[in-house]
């Protein structure tokens, strides 16, 4: 278990993190969302010892993360950075060895990763000679090369083309299947929704929503009814005293109930108003849940 427990952090009067707590289970892919400046990077940097929390701690298997533990973590910083003039393979080997691998294992791991990324032929080139997209892949390889027990990746998908996204997703899924917890931040919520089994939304310095995507849906489950009566202008819904209409357009009415158990009453009223084509509680997208959570 990777536990973030009550992290607080402020820079002067600016409170960045205010009681941030969440847990990433082994084999879990945890999507870390939040607006720009919400504190995602700060949270990750605290875990990597690059910033110090004012209060709270980060633990891995009940042990506070120290340098020893950190060597087993693969980290990709928000601000990418490797040695520009150092050959790619040599560079990956160096990082693998700094993380504790012996030289043979480091070489083997670096070669395998580069070959897997289709960069095997570039392994002797200096990093700066590669295209930006390929440099991004090497950066990912640097986080993965030591076969880490935990992955903390800050915006790993930004800058990748769709093929790169798929390849990285496959790679992460494979590591996850071996029990590696993966924490990654992303602005691409559709991606998070597709890949993650758990999501945390950071807003106002605290986790406003956290859990599996299904759990979040559950929480939002009985919020909005969607009723489709082709040809209707939605007037019928506005006359219901116990419902609040969010929108009514092209026969599609979205409404919220003060008391969700009265959904059958809404159905009756709808049937009275016309021929009901669709009726049901709406499944919110992560984007909507995100907007909801951040706005709250």
């Amino acid at each position: 278990m990777l536990e973030f427990d009550g992290l607080r952090k402020s820079y002067g009067a600016n409170v960045v993190l205010d009681e941030v707590s969440f847990t990433v289970a082994p084999g879990q892919m945890y999507g870390f969302c939040g607006s720009n400046g919400a504190g995602k990077t700060t949270t990750m940097r605290i875990a990597m010892g690059l910033a110090r929390a004012d209060a709270g701690e980060v633990r891995w298997q009940q042990r506070p993360i120290d340098l020893e533990v950190r060597r087993r973590i693969g980290y990709m910083p928000e601000e990418r950075g490797l040695y520009p003039k150092m050959p790619v393979a040599e560079q990956l080997e160096y990082f693998a060895r700094l993380h504790g691998m012996n030289s043979a294992a480091a070489r083997c791991s670096a070669t395998d990763l580069l070959d897997g990324m289709g960069l095997g032929k570039r392994s002797k080139d200096a990093l700066e000679k590669l295209s930006l997209g390929n440099q991004q892949r090497v950066q990912l390889a640097a986080a993965l090369v030591s076969n880490p027990d935990v992955l903390i990746l800050d915006e790993p998908f930004s800058g990748l083309d769709p093929t790169g996204v798929d390849a990285l997703a496959a790679n992460l899924a494979e590591r996850r299947s071996r029990g590696v917890p993966v924490l990654f931040s992303s602005h691409q919520l559709d991606l998070v929704e597709r890949l993650c089994d758990a999501v945390g939304i950071l807003a106002g310095g605290t986790i406003v929503a956290s859990g599996t995507v299904a759990q979040l849906r559950e929480r939002e489950a009985n919020r909005q009814l969607r009723v489709v009566i082709p040809g209707s202008d939605g007037h019928w819904a506005r006359e219901l005293g116990y419902a609040h209409v969010d929108s009514a357009q092209d026969g599609v009415v979205l409404l919220q109930l003060d008391d969700p158990s009265r959904d059958q009453d809404v159905l009756s009223a709808a049937m009275a108003a016309g021929s009901v084509a669709q009726f049901g509680w709406r499944q919110p997208t992560l984007v909507e849940m995100f907007r909801e959570a951040v706005a709250a």
Partner: peptide
């Protein structure tokens, strides 16, 4: 990363650790 089968073949244990 297109060859994820490649990385899958890697053993997970870090026996190379020192």
């Amino acid at each position: 990363m297109s060859g994820s089968d490649r990385t899958a073949s890697l053993s997970y244990d870090r026996t190379g650790d020192v």
